[in-house]
Write a protein that binds this DNA or RNA. Sequence first.
DNA 1: CATTAATTCTAACTAACGTTAGACAACAAA
DNA 2: TTTGTTGTCTAACGTTAGTTAGAATTAATG
Lengths: 202, 202
Amino acid sequence: MSDTLAKKDRAAETRTRILDAAASLFRDKGYAAVSLRGIADAADMKAGSVYYHFKSKEEIVLEVLNLGIERVHKTVKAVFDTGKGNQENAALITDAICAHLETLLEHTDYTSANVRIHGQVPEAIRSEALVVRRRYEALWDDILAHGKAAGDIRQDVDLKMFRLMLIGSLNATLEWFDPEKGSARDISRAYAAILLNGLMDK
Amino acid sequence: MSDTLAKKDRAAETRTRILDAAASLFRDKGYAAVSLRGIADAADMKAGSVYYHFKSKEEIVLEVLNLGIERVHKTVKAVFDTGKGNQENAALITDAICAHLETLLEHTDYTSANVRIHGQVPEAIRSEALVVRRRYEALWDDILAHGKAAGDIRQDVDLKMFRLMLIGSLNATLEWFDPEKGSARDISRAYAAILLNGLMDK
DNA sequence: CATTAATTCTAACTAACGTTAGACAACAAA
DNA sequence: TTTGTTGTCTAACGTTAGTTAGAATTAATG
C-alpha cells in the first residue's frame, strides 16, 4: 500500500535529489562552473544516471530557476492576499519585503540559485525563465499599485523603477549575507525602513 | 622619436587589448564561460600568445576586477573631494550615487565585469580582489559619516547596512539596464531620490 | 520462478578547456 | 647584412566537459 506509493514516487524523489543538489551547487559556484558529474556526486549517483531523469543540463537548470521564483512568489502572494484587506500599506509592504528576503536568505537554495545564475545561463533558457519571473514582478506591481491607490505613496516616485530597485536591492543581499552577523529578519526590517522612509532626516 | 615610444608601448597596448576583450566577455558571459581562446579571438590573436603577456587566466581576471573597482573609486572620490566643502549633503550624496551609476552603466566594461563575476572567480582571486573593494566601501563610509556628522541623516539608520544596500542596489541595475529605455543619468536621479527620501508619503 | 519494467552503472565518444614548448616572424641595433 | 630581442604562431599535452549506448542491476508482476 504505502509500498506502492513509495514505488510510484521513487523516480520523483530521485529527481528532487538531483534538483536539490544542482540548486545548491549552482548557488555556490555559478552555472558554468558546475559539472554534471558534480551534480551526480552530490546526489549520490553516477553522471550517466542523471540522464534517465533529465535530458540535459539545461533542463535541470531551467527547473531550478523556475522553482526558485515560484517559491518566493508563493510566499509573497500569501502575505499580500492576507494583508491587503486589513493592514496599513506601510505594514503590508514591509511584510512583503520581509517575506521575499527571508525566503531568499534562509528557506531554499532554489531562490538564491535563481538570483545568482539567472544572468549566466544560455539565452534560450534565460528567456524561458523570464516568463515565470515576469509573473513575480507583476505581483509587486500589484502590491505597489494598491498602495498608490490608497494615496500612501509619494506621487513623484516611478513605481516601475521602484520595483526594479526593490527587488534588485533585496537580491543583492546574497552577496554579503552572513547569518552569524545578523538575522535575515533584522536585515529585512532595516531594508524595509530605508526603502519606505529613506536615508535623510526631515 | 614617436617611433621609439610606440615600440616601447607596443606590449602595453596588446596587454590592454587583451584586458579590454576579457572585461567585455566576462561581463557578458561570466567567468567560467569565457575561454582563453575566446579572449584571444576578441583581441585578434591566438590563445598561446596571450601567455606572453599574462601567466594565467586568473591573472587576467584579477587585473580586470581591480581595474573595475579602481575606476568607480576614482570617479566617486573626485565627486566627494570636490563637493564636501561646499555642497549640501543631499546634493553631495546624490552626485556620488550618480557618479557610481553612470560609470557602471556607461563608461567601462571593467566596472560591470567586476560586479557580475566577483562571486564566480576562484576564492584565491576573490580574496585578493576584496582588498581593493574594501577600500571603495570605506570611501562610502566616509561619505555617509560626513553626512551624519552634519546631522542631515536620520539617527535610526544603520549606516553600514545602508551602504550595503546602496552599493547593492546600484550594482543590480546591470541586470536590467537598457540605454534605449532610459538614460543612466535619469536612473541615477530616480535612485538617489528614493534612497534619500523613501517611497512613502510624508 | 520467470519475465518484464524501471533504474543505475560502465565505458566510451567528441569537443573544448588551460597551458606549454619550440618554431617562426618582425623589427631595432650593430 | 648579421645579430638579438620581442612578440606571435603552431601544435600538442593532459584533463574535463556534456552526452550516449548498452550492459547490469534492482524491484514488481505474472
